[in-house]
Simulated scan of single mutants.
Amino acid sequence: MAYLAFYLLVGRLISSIFAGQIDKDDIVGSASSILLGMALPIAIGGVALFIVTVRLGMLGRIFGPQPIRGRGWMWIGPALVVAAIIAHVTGTEWSSWTGGQIAAMFVLGACVGVVEELATRGLVIQILRDARHSEKFVAVVSSLVFALMHTVNLLSGMELSTVAATVVYTFGFGMCMYLTMRVTGTIWAAIVLHALTDPTTFLSSGGVDTAVGTSSSSGAIAALVTVLLVVFGLVAAFFVRGKVREPQHTFAA
């Protein structure tokens, strides 16, 4: 909650400082609008989150090898995410975007991937594991926290129905990111997939709050894979097993 409050405060401050360079009616309408209106607040929030992580002595554990590995079926999670990314890439009308917008989108994706994974698959999971919870509890609660983070979109004027759909999707996606971390043994895999998911989704749909179209075969495939991803994430929550048996040692950064 503290991070979200800080992020919203920074966002408002940046919007007032760079009001002339941020198009509030079309936030993705220019590279400067994407970078200043979307990426910069996340990056600044990420710096604050990084400092907190260092102060808590969790940096080494979060970015180091995972203390518990996954089972073979868990590879379905990252496989679905990769399939969705490929479908979005092939279904994007690249000619409708400038080179600057595309580059800015991937900068935004990098910021989102690092910061949101550090917050949820990093700090939240580490805190829950240190509290000796089972991995099922860790997976569900961390994914739920990730999903509920997106309710702040209500403050930006997003419709309630869209926010509700986003929360359901992000829970499923969060579960897939958790499974990605389990089977690869590192948070970096989840960061990379997350960093590619957001920009390719935005570029494919044509905006931040717009659903991916189904007018093309690639769009239809992307929509289908997204549904499968959500369903799999919800079902997977019932099958996660395991527990970190021994308290993890704290490594100062």
Results as ranks from 00 to 15, higher is better:
residue 137 F to A: 15
residue 149 M to W: 10
residue 205 S to M: 13
residue 229 L to K: 08
residue 30 S to V: 05
residue 81 V to T: 13
residue 245 R to D: 10
residue 68 I to Q: 10
residue 29 G to S: 11
residue 173 F to V: 09
residue 132 R to N: 06
residue 32 S to Q: 15
residue 71 R to L: 13
residue 123 L to M: 15
residue 192 V to M: 13
residue 181 M to C: 14
residue 38 M to C: 03
residue 50 F to Q: 05
residue 184 T to F: 14
residue 92 T to K: 03
residue 126 Q to G: 12
residue 195 A to H: 02
residue 184 T to I: 15
residue 188 W to I: 03
residue 195 A to Q: 06
residue 214 T to S: 13
residue 50 F to I: 07
residue 41 P to L: 06
residue 162 T to F: 04
residue 53 T to Q: 06
residue 171 F to K: 04
residue 183 V to G: 13
residue 173 F to R: 03
residue 33 S to Q: 06
residue 194 H to F: 12
residue 169 Y to V: 13
residue 150 H to G: 05
residue 103 A to K: 00
residue 139 A to R: 05
residue 21 Q to W: 00
residue 216 S to T: 08
residue 113 G to K: 01
residue 105 M to E: 06
residue 93 E to Q: 01
residue 45 G to I: 09
residue 246 E to M: 12
residue 202 F to Q: 00
residue 179 L to D: 01
residue 189 A to I: 06
residue 40 L to C: 14
residue 94 W to N: 13
residue 80 L to S: 07
residue 125 I to F: 04
residue 249 H to T: 09
residue 99 G to N: 10
residue 91 G to W: 01
residue 152 V to C: 06
residue 45 G to V: 09
residue 13 L to H: 02
residue 40 L to N: 02
residue 12 R to C: 04
residue 130 D to V: 01
residue 114 V to T: 03
residue 108 L to Q: 03
residue 143 S to E: 02
residue 143 S to C: 11
residue 88 H to N: 15
residue 58 M to N: 07
residue 121 R to S: 12
residue 211 A to H: 07
residue 21 Q to C: 00
residue 234 L to M: 14
residue 153 N to K: 11
residue 111 C to P: 00
residue 44 I to R: 05
residue 70 G to F: 11
residue 251 F to T: 11
